[in-house]
């Protein structure tokens, strides 16, 4: 697995991108977007996580095993969310 090490320039770029997105998140709190507020904030958070995973965690250059590790982590997060929500979202269906 030949890994090309990213240059320090790209690390600075990633760092400033993350900073910029943080400021966007802060700015967002001053806007009144109603029900779109949370989805947009989550979208920004997601893109930040993606940048961290791809560059800082070297997933962009990593082999398939790295992606398998990431994928299983996400799958398990999905299990946690789905089965927990299977309780929260169905509480009103039947009362006892």
């Amino acid at each position: 697995m030949a890994e090309t090490l990213a240059s320090s320039r790209s690390y600075y770029l990633v760092f400033f991108a993350l900073l910029a997105l943080t400021f966007v998140t802060i700015g967002l709190t001053f806007l009144h977007l109603g029900r779109w507020h949370t989805p947009i904030a989550l979208l920004i958070a997601f893109s930040k996580a993606l940048i961290v995973a791809l560059f800082f965690m070297h997933l962009r250059h990593g082999n398939r095993l790295y992606w398998l590790a990431l994928g299983s982590g996400l799958l398990w997060l999905g299990i946690l969310m789905t089965l927990t929500l299977s309780d929260f979202l169905t509480r009103d269906w039947l009362s006892y």
Binding site: I79, L83, S86, T90, R91, L94
Partner: peptide
Amino acid sequence: GFLVWGHHMFVAGESVYAALVF
């Protein structure tokens, strides 16, 4: 083993449907 944890919560106020699934 990761899909069964709700069986600890049958009387805790978990929804009936979730209880059936777990």
